[in-house]
Nucleic acid binder design. Structure first.
Length: 498
RNA sequence: GGUCCUGUGGCCGAGUGGCUAGGCAGAGGUCUGCAAAACCUCGUACAGCGGUUCGAAUCCGCUCGGGACCUCCA
């Protein structure tokens, strides 16, 4: 570990300010991030969130902090139209369309999500709990809220009583919502008979017999409300309060607002000290969302099979593109931006190789200025990362380090031992370990067939010119390394390890 | 309508009031049999108008444009 400052400032979306990050327990971080609802293929938006918090997770670990990172899998489908109380469960709908068991659907997309994230070099979280695996815990939280008088049962469902809650706590503190306006806004919706108040939200929903995913509860057969799983599972694995809660900006309201309310209502305590929200991916200025149908799946990104894609993009290109912007800004999709990210990422890959191979020129004079520039750029990686995880600026520092490394390589002078070792440590550490860019595998073998094609062409050309010395030279040298040439009338083939 | 974010050079995209991020594209150069690669140099941009200030892309106000949330959503 390097001796640079470890004071990290985080933009807390609860206060709207950058705040010094103080973990509850020194040297440890508890982080909870909202994961996917597994009823469809992962798309660019999922990648944005996963990569944002992956980098944060990686950076804390890199600094030597012990992180417990919990990211849930929502495998209870919930209702597509919850307010109107008549929607279809998303997972059940998908199961019907694909003629599968609901849990088969959930499993399939969970697997796909994990595989895809692995391609993006997103580390698996420490714990990846499923909503369906924590029904008991969710019921317990609901019972707490009921016994505290801030929820009520109605026709087999349980709702959080927002008015009762607001008497004691501040509802809307995260999203800036004003309760009166919320109620005014929802007044004309139908299907609200069960609720005392339109702004009340479900903690538990009664299931009709036809609803396949259902569990027993003190209130009869049903399934948990959308927000309660995060409250139950974050408390179970991280305790209360914990350090960081992350997720997409679009979850601020109602999801995260509801989590805060549930936590206070059940345990009289804020769930978390720092709220972090990543911004959206947009397509032609519009948010990418499954519901809008304007999303590009990650599978399509990697294969290029989408009408808007000019080519296939490597997962690392996608990752790099996202790191070039701060997590709090919107990223608009474009082929130009991706292409430019691809080229830039490849350059840094070469920089990694170059820097890895640098050696001290001990017979040359030490260039103190260059040494200092290297140390400053190294420190900047930490400084920028500490400033609300500004990966865009870290990349700028890495480009600067690469440029300085090239200067060193081309100059007839040395740098201090400290500068050289710091350069190597920092560049690799930030590029690979923190930003999580996978070093390019040398894909030399991929070229073998084409290389053999070329060699074959040269040899056949020699044979046709009766330059048998050259032709035999090629055949004999290949034979020595285990490649046997087989000439037939119309073509030449090769046998390896012959 | 309410709440909030945002508008930066050809493009993408950072930016804590003063010390011109960075990348892509483009131009010139070094190197080179040619080409490529690599490296070096070059662009003084901050929607508009007004204000605060010695000084503003950065703070304040207004105008215009874009977006998010207020229903499921990463």
């Amino acid at each position: 570990m390097d001796s640079f400052s470890q004071d990290i400032y985080i933009k807390n979306t609860l206060s709207g300010d950058k705040e010094l990050f103080k973990p509850i327990s020194e040297g440890r971080v508890g982080m909870y991030v909202c994961g996917p609802t597994v009823y469809g293929e992962p798309h660019l938006g999922h990648a944005r969130s996963a990569i944002t918090f992956d980098v944060i997770y990686r950076y804390f670990s890199f600094l030597g902090l012990k992180v417990r990172y919990v990211r849930n899998i929502t495998d209870v489908g919930h209702l597509e139209d919850e307010l109107a109380d008549q929607g279809e469960d998303k997972i059940i709908k998908k199961a019907r369309l694909e003629q599968l068991e609901p849990m088969e659907v959930a499993q399939r997309y969970t697997n796909l999500y994990r595989d895809t994230m692995a391609k993006l070099n997103v580390l698996p979280p420490s714990i990846e709990p499923t909503a369906s695996g924590h029904i008991t815990e969710q019921i317990e939280v609901i019972q707490e809220i009921l016994s505290n008088g801030m929820a009520y049962e109605s026709n087999g469902s349980v709702y959080l009583d927002v008015n009762a809650y607001a008497d004691k706590y501040h509802y809307g503190e995260l999203s800036g919502r004003v309760l009166d306006e919320l109620m005014a806004g929802s007044r004309d919706l139908e299907g609200q008979q069960e609720k005392k108040n339109p702004a009340d939200f479900a903690l538990w929903k009664r299931a009709e017999a036809s609803h396949i995913m259902q569990w027993s509860s003190p209130w009869g057969k049903g399934f948990p409300g959308w927000h309660i799983e995060c409250t139950a599972m974050s408390k179970k694995y991280l305790g209360l309060p914990f350090d960081i809660h992350g997720g997409g900006m679009d979850l601020k309201f109602p999801h995260h607002e509801a989590e805060i309310a549930q936590s206070y209502a059940a345990f009289g305590c804020t769930p978390v000290n720092y709220w972090l929200h990543n911004n959206m991916m947009t397509l032609k200025g519009q948010k990418m969302a499954k519901s809008k149908g304007n999303f590009i799946t990650l599978g399509q990104m990697f294969s290029g099979e989408h009408e808007l894609l000019l080519q296939a993009y490597d997962p690392m290109t996608v990752r790099f593109l996202m790191l070039q912007a701060h997590y709090g800004s919107v990223i608009d999709f474009s082929n130009e931006a991706l292409k430019s990210a691809e080229i830039a990422c490849n350059k840094l890959q070469k920089g990694l190789e170059l820097i890895g191979g640098l050696e001290s020129k001990s017979d040359k004079i030490v260039d103190n200025e260059l040494s200092q520039q290297i140390l400053t750029a190294c420190e900047n990686c930490y400084v920028k990362m500490n400033d609300d995880f500004n990966t865009a600026q870290v990349l700028a520092s890495l480009f600067e380090l690469m440029s300085l490394a090239n200067k060193f390589e081309n100059k007839e002078s040395n740098v201090t031992e400290e500068a050289l070792s710091q350069l190597k440590r920092t560049f690799k550490g930030f590029f690979c370990d923190v930003l999580g860019i996978q070093p390019q595998e040398s894909s030399e073998n991929d070229y073998l067939p084409e290389v053999m094609e070329i060699i074959s062409e040269i040899r056949n050309d020699a044979r046709s010119k009766k330059d048998f010395q050259m032709a035999d030279f090629i055949r004999d040298r290949l034979a020595v390394i285990g490649i046997k040439i087989k000439d037939s009338i119309d073509k030449t083939t090769f046998e390896f390890n012959g």
